[in-house]
Structures are given as structure tokens and as C-alpha cells.
Design a protein around this nucleic acid. Sequence first.
DNA 1: CATGAATGAGGGTTCATTCAT
DNA 2: CATGAATGAACCCTCATTCAT
Lengths: 206, 206, 206, 206
Amino acid sequence: MAREKDEGKRQAILAAAKRLFAEHGFHGAGIADLAGQVGLPVGSIYTYFDNKEALIRCVIEEGWDGFFTGLTKVLAEAPSAEARMALIVHRVLPGLFEDVDLISILLLEASRFVGIEAKLESLTGLVVGLVRDLAAERGVAMSFPDELARAALTLFFLGSLDTVRLSRVAGLGIPKESVIAFIRLSIENSFHVDLDPRLAGLPAGA
Amino acid sequence: MAREKDEGKRQAILAAAKRLFAEHGFHGAGIADLAGQVGLPVGSIYTYFDNKEALIRCVIEEGWDGFFTGLTKVLAEAPSAEARMALIVHRVLPGLFEDVDLISILLLEASRFVGIEAKLESLTGLVVGLVRDLAAERGVAMSFPDELARAALTLFFLGSLDTVRLSRVAGLGIPKESVIAFIRLSIENSFHVDLDPRLAGLPAGA
Amino acid sequence: MAREKDEGKRQAILAAAKRLFAEHGFHGAGIADLAGQVGLPVGSIYTYFDNKEALIRCVIEEGWDGFFTGLTKVLAEAPSAEARMALIVHRVLPGLFEDVDLISILLLEASRFVGIEAKLESLTGLVVGLVRDLAAERGVAMSFPDELARAALTLFFLGSLDTVRLSRVAGLGIPKESVIAFIRLSIENSFHVDLDPRLAGLPAGA
Amino acid sequence: MAREKDEGKRQAILAAAKRLFAEHGFHGAGIADLAGQVGLPVGSIYTYFDNKEALIRCVIEEGWDGFFTGLTKVLAEAPSAEARMALIVHRVLPGLFEDVDLISILLLEASRFVGIEAKLESLTGLVVGLVRDLAAERGVAMSFPDELARAALTLFFLGSLDTVRLSRVAGLGIPKESVIAFIRLSIENSFHVDLDPRLAGLPAGA
DNA sequence: CATGAATGAGGGTTCATTCAT
DNA sequence: CATGAATGAACCCTCATTCAT
């Protein structure tokens, strides 16, 4: 047998590509640079990916899938809407906010290469459901029509991502924690709920 | 008169550049394309701008200035914080949301070419002041520390821009009006105020 | 037996190579494509052939040998010059004209990779001899000097091949049968002979 | 005004391209080589031609047009079919046979890049007409159907080109003069005519 | 000052061949 | 011996910028 396609190399390429695409954008990132960073000859990139576009598409898809499956897994394991929301606020979002490279690519490049709207729709669909569950659970009337709820969720999602992104890349002095805190507060006020970190299995002060 | 004609060309270049940068991004937009669209020889572009980067910087600066001076002008002419907020919701934001090219450039390119954080800070500074005025005017306690308020405003600003942008370029089915409506509602709920369009000098149903 | 199987692979490679070289030319045909078509790993190609050039050289040599030995065999079995000529016109040429892939390679690639002139010379030598035999047999004076005869034969050979080739690849509307008919007519007129198909062991109307 | 597109450069590029395409084939000839030979930077090639394919197409079209308009011009100026045929044999074909690069490209590359069959058809159409005129003029019956005449002419045309080409590139020892002589002889025998060089305005011994 | 051809480094991609497995 | 990933020079082409005209 010849050498087999090395999943490790594939992952290394994807990781380097994510960093470079995030930093320089799709056009600004070069295949030669990428290969150099992974310590591979240029041609090898094309052993693992058909072309530059396929590469960024893969970065986007795998990045999104990682986030989304993490989210659905988290949601499945929580007993109540309240706990699910707490997990989002204390686990899912902080995790996502850690990955500024992914955020940059999702915000700056994704819409040019994949159908980002389908992804956003499935996300807002999921969260709208959660919000309705939470409202029912807390006995709060959901006065919003769905359309407004989706606008609100999209605005919060994209806005928090962009805030986190610019905080790092542009030196905006807004810590991730403030963004999380504001989101938490908004939910707590809207649904008269206390999203205590302990609901997410974290120590009280998180 | 000669001066006049030159300024016209400069503006034509800027207008075309804005469109192209918005559509294709900085790297994707070519100087030759640009010159072609304006009906000018390539060399002439360099009579008005030192290079491509100076050109996009100018697009960004003038775009932002247009928005920001419009905003300050609007704020100056209103008698109360309530009216100022109404103007933002019913005039300033809708106007900005109309200009998706500008939005795209601000979100996708600005941070690479200009100090976007200073701009955002002066904007949030302005609006935080307005919010405090409004809270005082309405007798509402502003429990938020400034840091959280700035995070909140940045999130709302960037989130609404990104939502509007993706609604157009990615076919996300969220109308500008829903975004505006959600922002309005959020403010009204937070400050127990009614941002009637008539406060912004518009007919009631706007 | 093992040897048998190997020879089968070698032939399969040669067959696929002939098709590909004919269709795309030497540079346009890729080793990976070739391997794919034969269902062999790329490395195996190099087990049977040193490199791409050796491969096309082999295609050319075997193709030519197939034609040439077929020709000599046919000529050996005929009793008279007239019959030999009839066999060429009614069996050898039609057979060759069927193999447009071989024709394409001979015309388009052969001169770059093998000494095509030696092949053509041995062919024209053979046929010049046949022509002289035929002239003697028919009592016709061969006024041509050998040099002219060789030019004539080369022109007819290459011209008929190219006509047949272009008829297929460029949609030139000239059927093989017309080419054969013209060649037959030219010989019949020159040597006052009737190249009846039956002389070649074929039914009268062929 | 800036420098204007220099027709001299364009011609120099075409000339070098013709040489290179003839020698190495389309794929074997490189743009960098070409540019080097003309003494131009690579990019300048693309000032004059859209891409490599456009370049070879232009070589083919201009080469063919040069030959074909030369042919029609020559035909127009001759008083009789006999003289026209003499001009073809003594002027047009020798001129064409001089340009082995053009011949190589027409034979080896043309069918991949332009509709060579249309060109051949217009050529054979022209010559079939001439042949009929000559037959009428000489009182010779044209027993051939048109289809056979076209096959014959195509065979002669392509065959003579290929013979001349291989004489040079493969060292086949057949001088152009022999090819011409055979063509002349074929015509003279078929139409009982004497294609004396003086009919083409040349000295008797040509 | 206006013009657009000139420039050439750098872009993404291919592919014959090798050789670790 | 079989395999197919590895290799990297070479391919065609683009494009921001300059500068001769």
C-alpha cells in the first residue's frame, strides 16, 4: 500500500487555512503561504482539497457543524428550557466566542461561499423553539410574532459575533464577558428567569 | 469650474468604488473594472487617489462621516431625548439600512483599513449619553454600568447592520422593518417610552 | 499465467493510451487519466513503461508494426502484382482507415517521438517495388523516376490518412469509401488495370 | 496619449508564436518562452491577445487568410483556367510549401482550435470550379462526380502539405520540387495540358 | 494633465515521476 | 510487487502601479 491520505494533514491544512482566511480573507490568503505554514509542498494541498474554494467551504462547513452539533448536543442533555438557555449562555456562546477565527470567517466570507442563510434559519428556528418553551415554562406571554423573534435572534447572534470579532481584531475594548452578560441580562429580563451558572453545571461565580 | 468637474469625477470614482468594493471585496475589485465603470482611463484613478488602499479608506471615511454627521445633525435638532431616540429609530437607522453597500464595506472591509474602533467608540459614546438622558428624562434607573451599555449598543448596532446586509446578499428573509421594529420595541420596553413616528416628524403609521 | 495477466495489463494500458493520445495529444493526455481508465494505480503504469514518452513510442511502434506486418503478410500471399494491389486497395487501406486513433497518432505525434521517416521509406520502398512489378506485369512503361514515385506514394499515403482523420475529427464530409475509390481509380488509370474486389477475395460489389 | 498598441509588437508576437507552436505544438509552447523570444514581458502578450488559445487561433486564421487571399488574387488575375492552374502549381503551392511552420500548425493544431473543415471546403469548392473550367477549356470529359473530386483534391492538398512538413521536420528526403512536379504531372495527364512555367510568368526552366 | 500600454511578481493549479508503505 | 500520496517546477494568467507619449 502507498501512504494513505493522512487525516492529520487534512486537519492541519484546515487549521492553518482557518487562521489565514480569518486573518487575510479569502483573496488575501495564499495557497503557498498556507502550504508553508503546514510544512507541506504546495501540491499536497490539492491532494486533500480540490481547490481554494473547496478549502474555505470546508472550513466553513466544519466550523459551523462543530458549533451546531455542540449546540444540539448541549440542548438534548438539559432537562428544562431554563437549563438549556443557561447552557447556551454559559457554555455554548462562550465556547463560540473563543474561536474568533471561525467567527471572522463566518461573518466575512461565509455568505460568499455557502448558503449561510439556511444555517442561520436552522439556528434561529431552534432557538425560537427554545424561547417559546422557556416562555411557556415561565408562564410568560410571548407577544412577539415569529418574524420579529427571528429578527431579534439574528440580530443578537450576528451582533454578538461581530462585537467579539471587532474586540479582538480592532482592539475594541469590549470583553467577551460583557457581551455574554448583556445577553444573559436580556433573557433574564424578558422571561423573568435567573440563568444561574449552576444551571449549566458551572460554579456559581462563572 | 475645472475644479467642479474634477470633484465630479472624484465622486464618480468613489461611488463606483463603493459599489465594487461592496460587491467583490477589496481584493476582488479591480482598478481597471472601476475605471471602466466610471468611463475614465486607469491612470486617472491615480490622479485622484494615491492607490487602491487610499481609495477604500476614503470610501470608508466618507461613508462613515456621511452617516455620523447625519446622525449628529439629527440629534442636534431635536428638543428631547425621547425625540432624539425617535429620530434615530425612524430616520437615521432606516437611512443607513438603505445603503447596503456602505454597510457591507463597514462590516467586511473597514476593520482592515481604518481604525474602526475609534468610530464605534465615538458612536457608542454619543448614544450612551443619549440613553442616559432618556433614562433621566423618563425617570428610569440605568442599572447598567457603562461597559455593559457599550457592549449592548455595539451588539445592537453591528447586529442590525449584519442582519440587514445578509438579508440582501444572502436572501435572509428578514425585512429591514422587522429589524427597526425590534430595536424600537427594545428601547420602548427598557425606558417605558413610546417612540411614535410623529416624534420624528413622520406620519403616524410609519 | 502470471505473465499472461501482466501482458493483458500492458495491452490494456496501450489501448487506453492510444485512445487518449489520439484524442488529446501527447501533452493533453494525463497519466492519471490513463491509469483511471485502465483501472490501475498510477504507479503500475511505470511498472510497464519507463515514462510517458516510452509509452507513446510504444503505441506508435506497435501500431505501425501491426499495420506493416499486416501489409507484408497480405502481399506475400498474393500471386500477382495486380492481386497485391487489389489487396492493398480493398483490404489493407480500409483496415487502416478504420483505426482513426492510430492515424491521428501517426500524423500528429509520431514525428516528434520516433523516426517516422525510416518507416515511411520502408513503406514507399515496398510499394515502389510493387508498382514496378505491376507496370512490368501490365506492360506499362514507368516513366517516373524513383524520386517522383516516392513523392507520389508519400503524398497519397499521408493525404489519404489525413483526409480520413479530418473527416472524423473535423466533420469533413468525405467518406472513407470516396478516398478508397479515388486511390483505386488513380491506380487503374495509371496501369490500365481493373482492381476488381474479387482479386482481393471479396464479393464483387465491395 | 499613452503609448498606443503597437502593431509591430503584435506581428512580432504572432511570428514568434507561429514558430513555437509549429515546433512544440500548442501545449508544448510556453507563453514565457514566447515572451522571451519577442523580448517582451509576459504580461504584454496579454495586452495583444486574450489568452493562449486566442493567440493560436489568430495564427491559424491569419496564416490561412494569407494563403487563401493570395490564392484568390492569383486566380483573379489569370486569363484562362490553364493559366490559373499554372499559377497554382508554380506560384501558390511553392509559396505555401515555403512556410513549413504554417503547414505544421494547419495540419497538427488547426482542427482543435478552428473550424478547419469550412476552410477546406471553401478551398476545394474553389478548385473544383477551376478544375471543371479547365476540363471544359480543354474539351476533356470530367467523369468524376463532385464527391470524388473533392476527396481527390483534399487528399492532394493535405498529402502534399504533410509530405512537405515531414520532409523538413523528419528529414524525409523528398524535396518540395518533387511534390510540385508530381502534382503538375497529375494535372497535365488528367487534362492533356502543358502547365509550362511561362504560363505563370516564370522563366521556362522553373 | 490625460492616457492606456507596459511591467513582472505573484496568483492558483497541474502533473510526470518517485518512493514510503 | 502494488499502491497512490508526495513532490515542486512549470504552467497560464492577473493586476496594481508606473510612465512614455
